[in-house]
């Protein structure tokens, strides 16, 4: 979506904060951050973030558009909600991080081979196919996401875990053929198509 990216750069030339407020889920909260850093100290993967949340918020206000959107920091969010529970200003930080990650993906700015981005995308595709997640196919697609050779290696490494799940009937081989899903699949897909259209239209409009 480089075209959309160009349109957004053009439209919000002077204010990345405004762009985030208009286009990122819960983005209107960003300006409320008071830079206390409780979020950074509360994050279970805090040391894996190049820019912890409060830094991301300050970078947004400072107009560091590319540094923020092409960062892999927000993809380190485990959705533990510690930051939300502790933020003294009540910012929905988890949701803002998810929103920024999604917006970066929409604009095509995610760093190459970001594993959580790949997994998140596979999860979304998997659930939309039949309305419910097919755990077996999701697991396999994840092992093979970096090509066949590495996929075989990962599968071997994970073999014992898979066997344990099979033996305890917490994984089912027949899920590879069809598997669980919603009955009204066509209705489900019509709903999702419409939801995507409405959201895409809203964001397109914001870039024009």
């Amino acid at each position: 979506m480089t075209e959309l990216n160009t349109a957004m750069v053009e439209q919000y030339r002077n204010s990345f904060l405004q762009e985030v407020e208009a286009n990122v889920e819960e983005g209107e909260w960003v300006k409320m951050c008071m830079q206390c850093g409780v979020c950074a100290g509360s994050c279970p993967l805090g040391n894996a973030w190049e820019h912890p949340p409060q830094e991301i918020f300050m970078m947004i206000r400072a107009g560091k558009r590319e540094a923020v959107l092409s960062s892999d920091s927000m993809w380190m969010c485990t959705s533990c909600y510690n930051c939300i529970a502790r933020c003294p200003r009540g910012l929905p930080i988890t949701h803002i991080m998810h929103g920024l990650a999604h917006y970066a993906q929409r604009l095509g700015l995610v760093p190459k081979n970001q594993p959580t981005q790949k997994f998140a995308q596979k999860f979304w595709q998997n659930l939309n196919k039949k309305g419910r997640v097919n755990e077996l196919k999701l697991g396999l697609s994840l092992y093979f996401m970096n090509g066949f050779g590495e996929g075989v290696k990962t599968s071997l490494k994970m073999k014992d875990i898979g066997l344990g799940m099979l033996k305890t009937k917490r994984m089912a081989v027949n899920e590879a053929f069809g598997g669980h899903g919603v009955k009204d699949l066509s209705g489900f897909q019509k709903i999702m198509k419409k939801a995507h259209e409405l959201e895409d239209a809203r964001i397109q409009k914001s870039g024009n």
Partner: peptide
Amino acid sequence: IGYGGGGEL
């Protein structure tokens, strides 16, 4: 984890 492909709506 659905947020990658799935926007808010």
